[in-house]
Design a protein around this nucleic acid. Structure first.
Lengths: 205, 205
DNA sequence: AATATAAATGAACACTGTTCAATAAATCAA
DNA sequence: TTGATTTATTGAACAGTGTTCATTTATATT
């Protein structure tokens, strides 16, 4: 009947407004300083209501990290037009790094923070669908590279993980403030230069 | 005079005991669940005393992260006996990754957690000596590689950062539970296999 | 209008990091 | 040895945290 339809719609709207408030607070203050009470204040409800929509704080940030994967996947869609797999791999790296540098807090949540993974292991179905989907795009591209004669002698799974590790390393060391070690005049461009060095290496393989 | 000597010694002993207690708690419960009161309980002092030896919680964990760099630097000392710079670079990578996998919590504190860097930027002298020293070892080895004809066309700073990024990526994705995406039968060995793929690439350069 | 169901509340619990006036202990001077 | 001074240590207080759940309020059904 119509009433329970509306009720479910209203429930979902409230859930969405919790997430919207959480996202806003998260982006301006970080995960630790975003409290349940802050979120409740923002949507003008009492703190308790949040626990009728989410098991705990981690579940909220797991939901937000899903948001991040949606936008990342959208940005990856242009790759369909890149025929050559090596070129596609490089474009993938560029998009990945641009996403990370333009959305450092969201990247941090998706690939560094413990909260979304902690939620996964607390819940029953503990496979990381979001990351798995993204990684599969990389894996397929690498496999295509290998089948076209690139990267001879390499195993696709290990190489995919290494490629991911390289680009993740470039951005995550930057996001977590470990670029202090880089010469001052190069510090602002080191991620991009690291990526270019990586491309140079890919070309030689 | 002798009394103030003893006093200073006692003060340092108390500081050390705070750090020892913090380290123990940190290794078994993590940074968030290690509270000032827990540490105080462990050394049988009141919580307030900790703030006479450390500005805040971040300073304690900055001191612990220094500990970690000491042990890492010790492990790196065997590299002095490796003459060929490319071989030395590979050995460096192996030691780095072994350290990370054998001491994941300490590695996390040194290269992923925000606490030690936050302390740095709160204090006046904001250069990361510990990381800088370690990175310089890598930089020197890469420079030697280049001067011996390896890695032609590469800039030493960018390449050093890329190499660091690659090995950091390998271990940090694992430590922060992002290896879920790897095929189950390869999941336990993926870091090592990623490193071997990396070595294979270095050889082709 | 009375009853049953669902939604929302806010007080309570056991914590957290941090500060600081008050206390206790140790040292110095007479 | 006693009194004054300095140093070390305390623990209560503040303003917060995530989470739970009996109670209340609002909505829907009979």
């Amino acid at each position: 009947m119509g009433i329970s339809d509306r009720k479910e719609r209203e429930k979902e709207e409230l859930r969405d407004s919790i997430l919207a408030a959480a996202k806003e607070l998260f982006l301006e203050k970080g995960i630790d300083k975003t409290s349940i009470r802050n979120i409740a204040d923002k949507i003008e409800y009492s703190p308790g209501i949040i626990y009728h929509h989410f098991r705990d704080k981690n579940e909220i940030f797991h939901a937000l990290h899903q948001d991040g994967f949606m936008t990342l996947q959208n940005k990856m869609e242009v790759l369909n037009s890149v025929r050559n797999p090596l070129e596609r791999l490089k474009a993938m790296g560029s998009i990945y790094i641009r996403f990370a540098m333009e959305n450092p807090d969201m990247y941090d949540l998706m690939f560094i923070k413990e909260a979304p993974m902690d939620h996964l292991f607390d819940s029953e179905h503990d496979d990381w669908k979001e990351g798995g989907g993204s990684f599969n795009g990389l894996r397929m591209t690498i496999k295509e590279c290998i089948s076209q004669g690139y990267f001879e002698g390499h195993d696709s799974e290990s190489l995919s993980y290494l490629v991911w590790s390289a680009v993740h390393g470039l951005v995550s060391l930057n996001i977590r403030k470990r670029c202090e070690v880089i010469e001052l005049e190069k510090r602002n461009t080191i991620v991009q230069e690291g990526l270019e060095a990586f491309f140079k290496i890919l070309d030689k393989l």
